[in-house]
Computed example of a mutant assay.
Amino acid sequence: MPGKPARTGTGRTDWAALKAMSDDEIDRIAAEDEDNPPSDDDHWADAAIGLPPGKTSIHASFDRDVVEFFKHGGRGYQTRMNAVLRRYMEVQKAKEAGRP
């Protein structure tokens, strides 16, 4: 975001090596990455664009092992917990609407 300082984390990305690469080299590496298949207009035909819903702050208690499981994944554990709850909610709503 403009005006926001870059985060300095302890991730595994070698930022110096990445900055030293040319755009062509980055494109070549991306094209060879089997976990990064190419996409075309059909891939994005049904994509929905929108903002995520607003957040509500609550106090909630979770089982200790559940929290530790999500914390084990590093920063963003609350976001991951929210994603799991959101997916569950979406599946339940689809069932109620009679969709598979």
Rank of each mutant, 00 (worst) to 15 (best):
D35A: 07
E32W: 07
R64T: 11
H72V: 00
A60D: 01
L51G: 01
R75A: 05
W44Q: 00
D35F: 12
R64M: 11
A47P: 00
I49Q: 02
D63E: 11
D33F: 08
P37E: 14
K55G: 01
E34H: 01
P38Q: 13
A60F: 06
A47L: 10
E32Y: 09
R64S: 11
F69Y: 10
A45F: 03
G74C: 08
G54M: 02
K55E: 08
L51V: 09
E34A: 12
E32N: 12
V66C: 08
G76L: 08
D65I: 02
D63N: 02
D41A: 15
D35R: 14
V67Y: 03
F69Q: 01
A45N: 01
K55H: 08
V67H: 01
P37K: 15
G54P: 10
D33E: 15
H72M: 04
D35I: 04
H43D: 15
P53N: 07
E68W: 13
E68I: 07
F70E: 01
P53Y: 10
F62W: 12
P52A: 13
P38C: 13
D35H: 10
G50K: 00
D33H: 12
W44Y: 13
G76T: 10
A47S: 03
D33L: 13
H43R: 08
E34S: 05
P37C: 13
S57L: 11
H43F: 15
D41R: 13
K55W: 04
E34Y: 00
E68L: 13
I58F: 05
G76R: 05
V67T: 03
N36D: 06
A45I: 06
D65S: 02
E34M: 02
D63F: 06
F69L: 10
K55A: 08
F62Q: 04
D63C: 00
F69K: 03
H72L: 06
L51A: 11
P53A: 10
G50Q: 05
I58V: 14
G76K: 05
G74E: 09
S61V: 14
I58N: 01
A47R: 07
R64K: 15
P37H: 15
F62C: 04
R75H: 02
F70I: 06
G73M: 12
S61D: 03
S61C: 03
L51P: 04
G76P: 02
S57F: 10
I49V: 14
R75G: 00
K71L: 02
S57E: 08
P53Q: 08
R75I: 04
G74W: 11
A60S: 05
A48G: 02
D35L: 14
I58S: 06
K71C: 03
E32Q: 14
P37Y: 15
S61M: 12
L51M: 12
W44V: 10
D63I: 04
G50D: 06
D35T: 11
